[in-house]
Design a protein around this nucleic acid. Structure first.
Lengths: 165, 165
DNA sequence: TCATTATTGTTAGCATCCAAACGACCTAAG
DNA sequence: CTTAGGTCGTTTGGATGCTAACAATAATGA
């Protein structure tokens, strides 16, 4: 994938291992680079901004979703955050334990749970998000405005194409 | 981020919550879409190809790296795979337990461990990788050849920019 | 009205993921 | 030869991540 070896080295080695079989190196590069960039981004943003607040990437994303759209039902938080409902339950438990959000069983539908931020949670996001966005800007500063628009559009195509049915 | 609400809806709501503060929506979109595409890709490839072989995404990546470059030292496998050494130890333990790879303590440097695939591991990759690459091609088929080159290049810029010092 | 089907959030089991600390080993300098 | 500093892989603790199964609740249709 996209590690310490160059693309050319990797392709050469893959051809050695697989012989003359037809391979789609272009698509391989797309997948590898999406994954590598995402990994590096997540680690970078966790180290540079989130760790100081003892927040994981996903913890932050969940707080962000509830901060922006709350009060909001857990099924919507899971979808908006891109994680499963089971994972969300665990992450909410962690954030609830830290005093950042609360859960309330729905009044009209006993199956539903509403999530909202506490005062501490809102205060945290008010202070943290501008820093986070600043670091996002720093990270994306290697791209021009047009490149940012292009890459967002192309990634959205791929994300839509691979979204669960 | 890039969930059930549109970009425009999200931007409008963020402006409502934060008021007139300056925000870099372009960079926000870049980060959100990288993360969402990566998430969807990983889940899609796990569901469509890897799950049938009881492999996780990272298990597959580690097998792939060892298949292509093996025998190879664990520190190189971790770097090439984009995971920490601690995580790699756990993943190797899982794959070793399934009989796909073996570890050998280095003969000349007692700190180092060499990793290589077993016959079963090689056979698995010989059969699995062409399927995986075919699905990679299917996933990336929404992009033209030029777009694949463009997006790979831009992602590589971001990945390099955010790589650990 | 009631049985059946569907949906929700939680739980269990298993896998991953990180940072930090640790023991073992290697290198360099005095 | 000894000591200090560095590197390696593993372990620990805590967090995440998935799927499937479950109990509780709601919706549907006969």
């Amino acid at each position: 994938m996209a590690g310490i070896h160059t693309i050319a080295e990797t392709e050469r080695q893959v051809s050695l291992v697989l012989g003359s079989k037809a391979l789609d190196f272009e698509s391989m590069a797309v997948v590898a680079n999406i994954f590598r960039a995402s990994n590096n981004l997540r680690n970078h943003l966790e180290r540079s901004v989130l760790q100081a607040h003892n927040l994981s990437w996903t913890g932050f994303v969940v707080l962000w979703v509830v901060w922006i759209w709350g009060p909001v039902e857990t099924r919507e938080v899971a979808r908006e955050s891109g994680i499963s409902k089971g994972t969300l339950t665990g992450v909410m438990k962690t954030l609830e334990g830290r005093g950042y959000l609360v859960r309330d069983r729905g009044k009209t539908d006993g199956r539903l749970v509403d999530v909202s931020l506490t005062k501490a949670g809102s205060a945290l996001m008010d202070g943290l998000f501008p820093q986070f966005n600043q670091e996002e800007a720093q990270v994306a500063s290697v791209l021009s405005s047009q490149e940012k628009a292009d890459i967002s559009r192309l990634l959205r195509l791929i994300a839509s194409h691979t979204a669960k049915a």
